[in-house]
Design a binder for these strands. Structure first.
Lengths: 133, 133
DNA sequence: CTTACTGCAAATTGTTTGCAGTAGC
DNA sequence: GCTACTGCAAACAATTTGCAGTAAG
């Protein structure tokens, strides 16, 4: 089944790769509507799934959120318990972790990604300001 | 708002703590029906959420799965790409990881958990058997 | 007695699917 | 021209919510 190159798929890919951060299907849809109204939600989901299969983007499902990330390389995330936002953690991929887990589980590990929970930079700053009131 | 101690909540807690592995809300429901038919799905969800809030159990949402775990201590998981099952990884919690992430993001990290993807022990064994056919 | 909790059904959310029409190749 | 892809609506799964009745304190 030879895959076809369509306008809508190209546009969707451009949006996620261009914006430089992960977004939900809903957010992709919203951006899409600005320039190309009339494209259906189903098309968005279908193309996001295809792009994942092709390894061009990555689907991130953690802590009940679902994001699509233009950067297909596995990387870690921080979930801010205060503001609820999700941030990329820019730390190098540590394959020693894979080896340790492989040993502990007797399994072959392909990749990992870590979900951190805490308070993000912004919320920490806000908290500090509060101290002076 | 003083919380009340109810029979259904106690039963649900017993099930998850007793079974020694994480289970979906659906699975809790199934076990529940064997001994206590008539308890509604909504009650299961409500009590699971309350138990999470109280820190007695833990909700795990990764890779599109949602589990409830009787062990509230954060720990890592392996998602088998072959059989689709989820396994606990029994490795000690490494807080150095938290410190590294805190530094990289300028954030305060409370905890983390890592999702590994790979091939589980069972599937590796099956694969080996295939070699001889 | 008071009101938090229950069981049911209906609502909501996020995502997928069926189908007739459209458009890549 | 063939058939994969689209847009829409309907279907779906997982979870939450509204409500009248029940039971914990």
């Amino acid at each position: 089944m030879q895959r076809r190159h369509t306008r809508q798929k190209q546009i969707i890919q451009n949006i996620i790769e261009g914006i430089g951060k992960h977004m939900t299907a809903e957010e992709v849809m919203a951006v899409l509507q600005e320039t190309e109204p009339g494209i259906g939600m189903a098309t968005v989901y279908r193309n996001l799934n295809v792009l994942c299969e092709e390894g061009i983007i990555q689907k991130i499902s953690e802590k009940g959120f679902s994001f699509y990330d233009g950067n297909p390389v596995p990387h870690d995330h921080l979930y801010c318990l205060r503001c609820g936002n999700v941030f990329d953690i820019d730390a190098p991929y540590d394959s020693r972790y894979d080896r340790k887990a492989a040993e502990a589980a007797g399994a072959r590990i392909i990749r990992h990604s870590t979900a951190f929970e805490g308070i993000c930079k912004n919320c920490l700053l806000k908290e500090e300001e509060q101290q002076w009131n």
